[in-house]
Amino acid sequence: MEEEMLFERIHAALEVQPPAGAYERLRVALNQRPVKPSMRPAFPMRWSNMSFRMAAGLALVALALAILAAIFAVHSTSNNYVPAGRGMSISAYQKMVADDDAAALAAFAGPCDTTTHSACLADATRGIPAVQKWIDDLTHAATPARFKVVDAEMRLHLTENLTALHDLVAAAQAGDGPAIDRAFVVAVYATDWTNAVIPSITSSQQVDAAAYQKSVQSYKKSLDTCSSCILVLSGKGNDCVTSKGIPCEILFGQTALAYVEFDAAIIRKAAPAALATKDARLQDDLAQADAVLLTMNRALAANDQAGFNAAVPQLQRITGQIDRDANAILQS
């Protein structure tokens, strides 16, 4: 690849100017929140016995307050649950998902990749209980109607993630490099999916018809113009698992992202009641596409070209349905 071409393409892809007034905002902030730069050694002060005792006392008080806050937090979290059948409010569901997502994120110190197995192993070991708790919470929650479809998708991805994390730990303990890579591909996909969709769930709001249609139009266009999707759906990428020409990691990742972004968009800007039926159809079809993409990712992880190819006609068919669903919404 020519250096010149890379310079041009990366400049074209990333070319952006700082937002208007950005430097000025920084200058104002620096003036409003003055800091005293630390000089080495960091804490040159000497402590008297009295001030040391006072500091120790304050630290104990702070520790006691932190423990009380933790007890309160655990208690208030457990109060978020509403027994199944009574339904859960949208905000309580959003909070539960946000908390579980934050706990799972905290377990992962990534980014890790296939060349840093030890970091991934540490992440996986910490991640297992967090993902398990997330699944348990979803199982016990009475999901609000708005999130029924995406909730089912989320459980699939979390279950896939949990299995992959267990596989990753087992493979790492056995020193099985190829198995580590396989588990890694599955785990990353599941994590990527939640990273893309969870912010939409937690910020989901019902919008009016015009705003919903604009969102559908925008992400439909994004799906239509996704060059990797075109390659996958046309069959041109169908030797990517085994071929060294176009690695599926990139081709598939971009294809899946285009569908997931669409899925996330209609959750973030939830349809008004007047479009609920058509929205449900679109959500169902995007969920079907998501299930096929999961199958393709499993095939990719297992280096199974035939399995990957077998899923393509299904994705083609569902993409046609998604297109019709979106057009029906846009023509309303």
Binding site: L105, G110, D192, N195, G253, L257, E261
Partner: peptide, 21 residues
Amino acid sequence: GRSKWWTVLKTEPPESEAAAV
């Protein structure tokens, strides 16, 4: 960017077919 292995890109809808490519 910690843990953002797959950040969602925010893109405006393209103005024309040529621009879309």
